[in-house]
Simulated assay, not measured.
Amino acid sequence: MSVFLYLPERRRVAAAAGVAAALALALASCGSGTEHSSMPGTRHGSSATASVPGGFNEADVAFAQMMIPHHEQAVSMAELADGRASDREIKSLAADIEKAQGPEINTMRGWLRSWGKSPSPSMDHGMPGMDHGGETAMPGMMSGKAMAGLKAAKGEDFDRRFAELMIGHHEGAVTMAGDERKNGRSPAARKLAGAVVRTQQAEIGTMHKILDRL
């Protein structure tokens, strides 16, 4: 009877020893995995992931800072069409400009906030977009005099002025967007620049056709 009781006890001891050995092996394996995480290949993967979000350069900042007031002026021009434009296509085009460029302004402001940059270009004398003596340095931006003339126009006179001025304004935006596509780093900013080029070039073509029939 005493032998019968002794054998199970030995089995229990052996089982416990087996569990302890398995646990020790598992802990050793975990320690080995931790050491592998410091290998050059692992560090490279971690570094690559960390460098992707938020990547931008000065060209991206300049694009957003300059395109915001550029878009704002286009929206102001488009808003004047209400009650002044007589051509159906001009009215439709003005509505499209408001619908597209308003949200783009908000998007670019968001980028600048996330980058820790001012939402507006420097107000220093001579900076692009500043109006000096009726002339502007930013591509396509209208002078105060030209804007006042558009505001005073009505009917077909407004339609023609709007198309002529907006063509120049769009051409300036296309130039700025082209610079961003070549020199920018931010994928989001470069994507928006591509959309500006495609959309505004198409609208330029539409406005040339409108002028041909007015």
Rank of each mutant, 00 (worst) to 15 (best):
A78T: 08
A78D: 01
E79I: 00
L80Q: 13
D82W: 01
D82V: 02
G83T: 07
R84E: 06
A85C: 05
A85L: 03
I90P: 01
S92F: 01
S92D: 11
L93T: 11
A94P: 00
A95R: 02
A95D: 04
A95T: 04
D96A: 15
I97W: 00
K99S: 11
K99F: 00
K99R: 14
A100L: 10
N106W: 01
T107L: 13
W111N: 07
R113I: 06
K117L: 02
K117N: 03
S118P: 07
P121M: 10
P121H: 07
P121K: 09
S122D: 10
H125T: 09
H125D: 09
M127T: 12
G129Y: 10
H132T: 10
G134S: 06
M138L: 15
P139R: 11
P139F: 12
G140D: 04
S143F: 03
S143Q: 05
L150E: 09
L150M: 15
A153F: 07
A153D: 06
A153W: 07
K154N: 06
G155D: 10
E156H: 14
D157I: 01
R161T: 04
R161K: 15
A163W: 08
L165Q: 14
L165F: 13
M166C: 02
I167H: 09
H169L: 03
E171F: 08
T175I: 08
T175H: 05
M176C: 11
M176H: 10
R181S: 09
K182G: 04
N183C: 05
G184E: 10
S186R: 01
S186D: 14
P187Y: 02
A188W: 05
A188H: 11
A189M: 07
R190P: 07
R190K: 15
L192E: 13
A193K: 13
V196P: 06
V196C: 06
T199R: 08
Q201R: 15
Q201P: 03
I204K: 11
I204D: 10
I204N: 13
